[in-house]
Design a protein around this nucleic acid. Sequence first.
DNA 1: CTGAAAGCGCTTACAG
DNA 2: CTGAAAGCGCTTACAG
Lengths: 355, 355
Amino acid sequence: MANSDRISSGESKKRASLRDVAARAGIGIASASAALNGSKSNTRVSEATRQKLAEIARELDYHPNAMARALTGQPTRTLGLLFGLERVTVGVANAFAFDVMRGIIATAAAERYNITLFTEPWHDSARSGGPWRDGRTDGVLLLAVTSDSDVIPTLTSMGVPLVAISSAYKDPAVLSVDVDNEAGANLATTLLIDLGHRRIAHLPGDENLTSAAIRRKEFLAVCRNAGVRVPEEYVPSGTFEQVSGYERTRALLALIEPPTSIFAASDIIAIGAIQAAHDCGVAVPEQLSVIGFDDAPYAEFSTPPLTTIRQPLAEIGAAASRLLIDQLQGIPTTENCILYPPELIVRGSTAVFKG
Amino acid sequence: MANSDRISSGESKKRASLRDVAARAGIGIASASAALNGSKSNTRVSEATRQKLAEIARELDYHPNAMARALTGQPTRTLGLLFGLERVTVGVANAFAFDVMRGIIATAAAERYNITLFTEPWHDSARSGGPWRDGRTDGVLLLAVTSDSDVIPTLTSMGVPLVAISSAYKDPAVLSVDVDNEAGANLATTLLIDLGHRRIAHLPGDENLTSAAIRRKEFLAVCRNAGVRVPEEYVPSGTFEQVSGYERTRALLALIEPPTSIFAASDIIAIGAIQAAHDCGVAVPEQLSVIGFDDAPYAEFSTPPLTTIRQPLAEIGAAASRLLIDQLQGIPTTENCILYPPELIVRGSTAVFKG
DNA sequence: CTGAAAGCGCTTACAG
DNA sequence: CTGAAAGCGCTTACAG
C-alpha cells in the first residue's frame, strides 16, 4: 500500500479534513485540531507530534475549513467594509473611497486579514441584518456613514466590533478615524480671506454627511469672525459630485454679484466648478479662485492645478484597519478617535484678489 | 406570558436560530428551513405557513447563518477577488485595478453578491490553499495573472469556478475577459508611424504579464511591417510603474540617437516618461511624442493631456463578474473569452514628426 | 406532506 | 495528557 498516498492524493475531488489527517496520524481528532490550528495547544501536543501532524497535513494538502471554524466561534480573519452612502457604487467609484481602501488593504494584508466588501447598502436595523453578524467577518469598517443612519448604534448593540471612517461620529465610545474637518475648512477659508477675497462662496457636499456639515459650519464661522458677509445664495446645497459642482457654480456665476472665490467641499466638486467657470468664460484663478478638499490624485493634473486641502486618506484607512484589528486581538487602544491634521496644498487655482 | 416576546427579544445577545423560529411556530426545523431559505420549498410548505414563518422570523430578527449554510454546501453569494501580481498593494494601488473593481462591484451588487478581497497573494499550489476552496467564496475573479503563475490550473483542478481578467490566458476552456491587446498596440504604433515617426521606442510592462508581452510583440510586428527599424535599446524592459517609465525614458533620451516617439505600455509608464522628458528639457509633444495605454482617469489631466489607448476597464470588470455569476447559476455562456476592442484617444501628447 | 436523524468540519468542555 | 462526545446552525436524504 505504499502508493496509497498517490492514489488518495489523486482523487483530489475531496478535500482532506481534520479527521483524515488525525486518522492518518493514528491520533484523536481533538489533538490534531490542537496541534494544527490550536493557539495554546502547547499544553496538549508535544512538539514532535506537532511536527508530524504538520507534515501529514502538507502531504494531504489539508487546509482548515474557515466556515467550520467560524461556526464554533473562531475568528475568520476577515474585515468587513460597509459603505455608509446608499449609492454604493458611487461610494466606491470616487477616488476618495479608493484611497482609503488602499490604506485599509495594505494594513489588512500585513496582518493577514482578508476583506469583504458588503455590496448591499445598509437600510435600517429592521431590514439589514445577516452579513454583519453571522461571523463571516470579525468586525466591520464603516465608510462615510451619514448622520441619519442607525447603522452604528445597531451594529454596536449587536456586539459587532467596528470603526467608523470619515463619519465624524460624535460618540467617543465608538472607534473612529477622520481628518480634522474643522481645521481643514479653516485652512481653506482663511487662505481665501488672506488672498483678499471678500465675496466667498462655499459648495458643501451631501448634507447628511457630517463631514460636509462640519466644513460648512466652519466656513461660516471663519467668515463671520473675519467680518466677511456670506449671503445665503453663496452656500447652495448639493452633493459630492462633479455635476453638482458644475451646476452650482454656473448658478453662482449668474448672480448679479458673483463670488470671486469658491471653497468647494471636495476636489471633485472643485473640478466641476472649474469646468463651469471655463464654460462661462471666467478665468481661474484670475477671475475666480477655487480651492478644493481631499487632494485627490487628479488634483495636481487639473488645469489649472488645484489648490486644495489634503487629507491623508490612505493613512486614515490604514489607521482604521489597525484600530479594528487591535480591538479584535484585544490590544488596548490608546485613543478612540483619531483625527488627522489636514494640509494646505497651494497650487494654481487660487490667486490674490484684484479688485 | 404575553410579554415573553419582549423579554426574549430583549436579551438580544443571542441571535435567533432556525430552531428558535421553528419552535415558536410549533413546526419542524426542516420545514422552517424550507419555508425560510429553501428554493424548491413550494413542495413542502404551504403559502400560509410560509407567511407565518416569515413573520416570526421578522419578530425574532432571524437571519440565516451563512457559515452554517456554507458548511452544507450552499453558495455564499460571495465572489473572491485574487490579484495575480505578488505585490498586492501595487495591484490595488493603481488606477487600473480600481477601475476594474468598479465594474466588478457594480455588477456584483446588482446581483446581490458580496466580494471578498484576498489579500494574501498566490504563491503556488503547495503553499496556497485555504481561502479559495473552503466555500467562503462561490468562485473567484483573477486579476492580471502572470504567465508563470500556476494559479489557474491549480484552482481549476480544485474545481473552483473562476474567470481571469486581463490575464491574456491562452486556454480557451477558462473563462476570461480582456481588452484586445494586440489591436491596442496596433492602434498605438500605427498612430506614431502615421504621424511620420521613424524612431519609435516602446516601454513594455512587467515581462511576466502576458498583456505586456502581447503589446510588445505587436509593436514590433507593426514596425517591421512598416519597414521601421527598432534597435534593441528602443525596447528596454521594465515594469508597470511610474518610476520605471521615468528611468527608462531618461536612458532613452541619453542615447546618441534618441527616439522621437514613445509607445508606453500603460498610462502610468507614460506619465513617468513625460516627467523624464520634462526634466531633460525635451518638449512633449514637439520633440517627443508619447502615447500611453489604459486611459486612466489622470490621463486627461496630465500636462500635456495624454494620448492613449482606452480600454473599457469598468466594462471588463463588469463582464467578468457577469460571466462568473452566470457560471455559478448554471446559465450557459455564449462565449468563453470576451475581448473588448480598444479605442484610440488622441489628446495632446502626440504630434506630427518634424524632421 | 412533515418530523427526527445524520452530517458538513471544526472546537470546546468532559471524561478517562 | 488524550479520546469520544456534544454542539455551532444549517440542509439533505430518510422515515413516518
